[in-house]
């Protein structure tokens, strides 16, 4: 999340900085000198924040990561160095492979569908329809709720004799009723569906902010040129929405890869291991199986995985966004 926002700030600030340099060059060197002197001084002001960050995040994370190379069970004061044994175990662990596959399916499905739905909603509420402000609030409302609470509610709604099957029974044949969270082939889809329901409004808000930043003149010029709605969307709106798209895709892929709460509340990773994700597997190994060191190794792999995928995705989208502009 932070990477996406930082990237955008740097990118948009760049032209401004160039302009400042050129203007200062034109008005004699005296203007630049205080800036150069001020930088080392200003850097000292970063030290308290960096020290706090190191104390709260970096040092504990590094110390925690070191457990991955031990056989610690999370309880016993004794532990031994085992090298890469926990990482080798991961390669042979069928549960880890299943969890990785399901995590990828969830992340890709959420990223694609949530953003497509979010974009459509944004385009809808950006138009001049009546009550669009009410619609914006209603569509964004699920994103404000705590994921654990919504997951608990949906768990009841999706129960075999829950509200959804009750509704289906009232309007359609019995065969339409499903065991939404209890059928291994459906459970993963149900979980993904709930997450999209909750966060599509979140993506919508970011797209909406992007849409509102597109100057009206651009639309008017396109109208004068006789561009159809589709061509306006394809050649004007989507390229100019690149920054919003980058942020949305980053947030949804990272959220999808480290998904825990909704899965834990709705299915606990079941039935069997049908909805197990890397995060739920990490939790189970750490706190249920006495395999703390192995869970840390899994967590390191997940961190690297998230960093590589989101970093690669960011670079790709960033390049495409710049090319479009």
């Amino acid at each position: 999340m932070a990477q996406g926002f930082e990237g955008e700030v740097t990118q948009s600030a760049e032209p401004g900085r160039r302009r400042a340099k050129s203007s200062s060059a034109g008005s004699a060197g005296t203007v630049t000198r205080p800036g150069k002197r001020a930088r080392p001084v200003l850097a000292w002001f970063l030290i308290p924040a960096l020290a706090l960050y190191a104390f709260v995040v970096l040092v504990p994370s590094a110390r925690g990561a070191a457990f991955a190379f031990t056989d610690w069970d999370g309880l016993n004061p004794m532990r031994h160095f085992v090298g890469l044994a926990n990482f080798r175990k991961m390669l042979e662990d069928e549960a880890a492979r299943d969890a990785l596959r399901q995590t990828l399916i969830i992340a890709v499905a959420i990223t694609v569908v949530q953003n497509a739905v979010g974009l459509l909603l944004a385009l809808g509420v950006h138009s001049r329809i009546k009550s669009r402000n009410v619609l914006r609030v209603l569509l964004f409302a699920p994103a404000v709720m705590t994921p654990v609470v919504t997951a608990a509610l949906w768990k009841y709604i999706l129960a075999p004799e829950g509200a959804l099957n009750g509704l289906i029974a009232a309007i359609g044949p019995d065969s339409w009723q499903q065991n939404w969270l209890g059928d291994p082939t459906l459970a993963l889809c149900s979980v993904v569906g709930i997450i999209i329901w909750q966060f599509a409004g979140y993506s919508m808000v970011i797209f909406l902010a992007g849409l509102q930043g597109i100057p009206q003149e651009v639309y008017e010029a396109a109208s004068v040129d006789g561009a159809s709605d589709w061509r306006r969307l394809r050649h004007i709106i989507l390229p100019l929405l690149a920054p919003a798209t980058t942020i949305n895709l980053m947030l949804s892929i990272i959220g999808g890869l480290k998904l825990f709460d909704q899965v834990w509340v709705m299915t606990g990773g079941g039935p069997g291991t049908a909805t197990e994700t890397l995060s739920t597997l990490i939790y189970k190994n750490a706190f249920q199986f006495n395999e703390y060191a192995y869970s840390v190794a899994l967590a390191i792999v997940l961190t690297v995985f998230v960093a590589v995928i989101s970093g690669g995705q960011y670079r790709l989208l960033h390049r495409q966004g710049r090319a479009a502009r």
């Binding site: 209890g182 059928d183 291994p184 079941g270 039935p271 069997g272 291991t273 049908a274 189970k284 249920q288 199986f289 006495n290």
Partner: peptide, 21 residues
């Protein structure tokens, strides 16, 4: 002897009921 047997039992029963084992 360890909590993994119980976990294998839980997962196994769910798989039995889902016709997956």
């Amino acid at each position: 002897p360890n909590p993994k047997v119980q976990q294998a039992h839980f997962t196994g029963i769910q798989d039995l009921f889902a016709d997956k084992a």
